[in-house]
Simulated assay, not measured.
Amino acid sequence: MKLIELLTNIEKIDEESVLYVKRIDGEFSSESEVTILNLTEEELEWKTFEVTEKKCPGFEYFMEAFLIKEFMEDVSSQYPTLEKKCDRLIHYVVFDA
């Protein structure tokens, strides 16, 4: 699934899930592939690189689903299109989170 597709259905994603995204040419993109993990209590204590090495090689930690849901609600009035919201989310993850 691509990041933009996930955002279309974010309300259906379990809030406890953690998203890991694959970079395209070194950057996160709306077209980046996403994997959704439901981690155990033990796995939640691992460092993010340990999770990616063991559960989803080639991906990078992106953000927890509940935070993405909150973010999307917060920017819904400021950014009219899903593409703009996705771009803003990526900017937030890269520079502000």
Score class of each variant (00 low, 15 high):
2 K>H: 15
4 I>E: 05
5 E>Y: 12
8 T>A: 04
8 T>Q: 09
10 I>S: 11
12 K>I: 01
12 K>S: 13
13 I>R: 11
14 D>S: 09
15 E>S: 15
15 E>R: 08
15 E>D: 12
16 E>K: 10
17 S>E: 08
17 S>R: 01
17 S>G: 04
19 L>H: 07
21 V>D: 00
22 K>T: 12
25 D>L: 00
26 G>T: 02
27 E>W: 06
27 E>P: 00
30 S>I: 05
30 S>P: 09
31 E>C: 07
31 E>D: 15
32 S>T: 09
33 E>T: 12
34 V>L: 08
37 L>T: 03
39 L>H: 03
40 T>Q: 06
41 E>R: 12
41 E>H: 04
42 E>V: 14
44 L>I: 05
45 E>Q: 12
45 E>R: 13
46 W>F: 15
47 K>A: 11
47 K>T: 10
47 K>Q: 11
50 E>P: 06
50 E>H: 12
52 T>V: 15
52 T>Y: 12
53 E>D: 13
54 K>D: 15
54 K>S: 10
54 K>A: 05
55 K>C: 08
56 C>W: 05
58 G>D: 03
60 E>Q: 14
60 E>M: 10
61 Y>D: 02
61 Y>Q: 11
62 F>T: 02
64 E>H: 06
68 I>T: 01
71 F>M: 05
71 F>S: 03
71 F>K: 01
71 F>Y: 14
72 M>T: 02
72 M>D: 05
72 M>C: 10
74 D>K: 14
75 V>T: 08
76 S>Q: 14
76 S>D: 15
77 S>N: 12
78 Q>R: 09
78 Q>S: 09
78 Q>F: 09
79 Y>M: 07
80 P>R: 12
80 P>W: 11
80 P>C: 02
80 P>Y: 03
80 P>I: 04
80 P>G: 13
80 P>K: 15
81 T>V: 14
81 T>I: 13
82 L>R: 03
83 E>L: 11
84 K>V: 12
84 K>G: 08
84 K>C: 05
87 D>F: 04
90 I>A: 02
90 I>H: 00
92 Y>P: 00
93 V>K: 10
94 V>E: 13
95 F>D: 07
95 F>A: 07
96 D>Q: 14
97 A>V: 07
97 A>K: 15
